[in-house]
Design a protein around this nucleic acid. Structure first.
Lengths: 153, 153
DNA sequence: GTTAAATTGGATATTGACGTCCTGTTTTGT
DNA sequence: ACAAAACAGGACGTCAATATCCAATTTAAC
């Protein structure tokens, strides 16, 4: 139900949030999130155009969050790469229904609303700070440092 | 977020439920639901293979629901054409996470679960019987009969 | 200034979703 | 038996999502 692109974008943002406000290179993010690097760069470009991340070219450059993890919600990220399209009007174009959805589309839109609400009320900070035995993107005990192209960060 | 195919399948099933236990032709359903007829026939074939509908060839034949509208949930229809895939294990394949999802995927799966739950607890009968000013698939006042290829049913 | 690091953008596969069309098969009514 | 109604299935076309690759551009460090 969620596209691969959404999954990739969220992984990248979670990683960036964990490093925030530091900038990270596409290589770093790709290694940590297991997203194909060439495609990740497209996803990050997209996130850049939608003002979720900011990028800096050249040596020492990379990508960083525009907002703080506490200010950024999952919904903003999802809507940047693949907007959740609520059902506003009757998909059959029945004029008389107007803004009033039929019971079927009412329920479909309710489902969309619940997803939107859940994602909109969760910040990246909440995701990162939640006490858990499974920290996002990494093995609980072992650090990922060794895996990141031998470069210790 | 919901595919076109899911939308089409649900429209067709709602229509069939409204005529249940009568059989309807693909032409009838296509006209009432505004789904392209050739594609609708594929969707209905699919619903047939998944035992949601049963079809009868020849004159007077058509497609009908296998269950009664009261026994059939929206979820069953959705899962027949495009199963809601819950996130069971860590998409990054982190062994140590095992069945325990990280906070990010926990929240994504929670969203899926809420959709699954909402769809699973709603029967077609409930959709049809809900008091509303916008009955499913048709204009509130005018009947659709005149539109259905001139054949009064 | 030159070089190396890093993103940007364009061009190009590949795959599945969406959609169409045609032929074959089953069934009913005459 | 024949004709018409109706679904079944395969072949095909189109387009967007996914993914890759390469050349161009920016930037920091020496």
């Amino acid at each position: 139900m969620f596209s691969q692109t959404v999954e990739y974008a969220l992984r990248a943002i979670v990683y960036l949030a964990s490093k925030s406000p530091q900038a990270c290179t596409t290589d770093q993010i790709a290694a940590a999130t297991q997203v194909p690097k060439p495609y990740l760069s497209k996803v990050l470009q997209n996130l850049g155009r939608n003002d979720i991340v900011r990028s800096q070219r050249g040596i020492g450059g990379g990508v960083m969050l525009v907002k703080t993890p506490a200010e950024l919600t999952i919904l903003e990220v999802v809507n940047a790469v693949e907007p959740i399209e609520r059902i506003e009007t009757c998909p059959l174009g029945l004029k008389s229904h107007g803004r009033h959805l039929c019971p079927l589309h009412r329920r479909m839109d309710d489902a969309l609303a619940s997803v939107e609400s859940a994602f909109g009320s969760t910040t990246l900070a909440e995701v990162l700070n939640e006490p858990t035995s499974s920290p996002p993107l990494c093995e609980p005990a072992a650090s990922l440092r060794k895996k990141v192209s031998g470069k210790v960060v």
